[in-house]
């Protein structure tokens, strides 16, 4: 009985497997797309990509986006995979700040120019945050303290965009921080909430709830003008530090992807990012949606890379 059931099942599976394939040539996309997330499931990049995948079929002739996690090597594994993938537009990389910083801090076979950016969908500005009981009530007080002694600053990990933000800040202020590098933003929050460190560099979206309920104090945001939703948080610019920084999240395909495919993707993701369902989810989960199209995003990444190049000596290649 069991054996017969098993045989039936495997025949069924084989039939499904055989008939599912075979796509017809035609307009792009004519089959499902794949977003490679170079991180483990559950993080900000993964979750936002899945939100994109959820609304995608509406804007891609009914084709789906499959999110595939390829963690490892500080995101190098997944990034390398896409850089080497067939440039047909079907393999997309979740393109984050680490694509720019990885080639500068590690030996990689790619640089940020190995990809053709398609769309940026999220920009989370950098925030300087301190425990609720911290003696520093303002950015000014923090800066003064940092100039006198070594303030401990928690980051979610070495060479993350948050670590880089602190390095840039160090450079601008001419100070030195004592770094507490963690493995995740979760441990960083734990250290801040528990008052074990004096300050932390994070993405604004990750801190909103703590700032709202007063368990952490926000000292400054690295943005141009105050955020209307958090008008109480000053910008670094107001203190005379012209510093705009943050974690960007976007999508990119391999460099040699044909121009018309890039155009089709650019168009499709413009609509996806504008989708109200997507915006609703992103907003509720605390990810600020900021859209840039393919050419603007490419230019933006260029600027980021240039900024990073300047502080490169501090993050020496190993």
């Amino acid at each position: 009985m069991l054996k017969r059931f098993g045989t039936a099942l495997c025949v069924a599976v084989i039939i499904v497997a055989l008939t599912g394939g075979g796509a017809l040539a035609g307009t792009f996309p004519d089959k499902n797309l794949k977003i490679i997330v170079p991180f483990a499931p559950g993080g900000g990049v993964d979750v936002t990509c899945r939100m994109i995948a959820e609304v995608a079929p509406k804007h891609l002739n009914g084709k789906k986006i499959v999110v595939e996690n390829m963690p490892g090597g500080g995101a190098v594994i997944g990034q390398t995979y896409v850089a080497k993938a067939k440039p047909d537009g079907y393999t997309i990389l979740a393109y984050t700040s680490s694509v720019v910083s990885n080639p500068m801090t590690k030996k990689t076979s790619f640089t940020h120019t190995s990809y053709q950016p398609i769309a940026m969908y999220c920009f989370d500005p950098e925030i300087l945050i301190v425990p609720a009981k911290s003696p520093y009530d303002s950015l000014k007080a923090f800066i003064e303290a940092a100039q006198k002694k070594e303030v401990s600053v928690a980051t979610p990990g070495y060479s993350t965009s948050h670590h880089i933000a602190s390095l840039i800040l160090e450079d601008r202020l001419g100070v030195k921080f004592g770094y507490i590098h963690n493995q995740s933003a979760a441990m960083q929050v734990q250290q801040l909430l528990g008052g074990h460190v004096e300050a932390g560099m994070m993405a604004m979206g990750e801190t909103t709830q703590y700032v709202k309920d007063g368990s952490l104090k926000a000292l400054g945001l690295m943005i141009d003008v105050r955020n209307p939703d958090f008008s109480a948080i000053p910008t670094f610019k107001e203190e005379g530090i012209d510093l705009v920084w943050g974690a960007f999240r976007g999508l990119a395909v391999p460099k040699d992807t044909p121009a018309d495919t890039v155009k089709a993707l650019d168009e499709a993701f413009k609509n996806i990012v504008a989708d109200p369902d997507f915006n609703d989810r992103m907003q509720k989960a605390g990810f600020p949606v900021v859209y840039r199209n393919a050419s603007d995003f490419t230019a933006y990444v260029g600027v980021v890379a240039e900024k990073l190049g300047k502080i490169l000596p501090t993050l020496k290649k190993q």
Binding site: V13, A23, E68
Partner: peptide
């Protein structure tokens, strides 16, 4: 028969039901 069935069942459990990606195969749906 056992080999075919086991592979089919494991493949079904991981890839078809749970959606875990497995190395692409000639016999697999794209």
């Amino acid at each position: 028969v056992t080999a075919l069935c086991t592979v089919a069942v494991v493949y079904a459990a991981f890839n078809l039901i749970l959606g875990v990606p497995l190395p692409q195969d000639f016999f697999m749906a794209k």
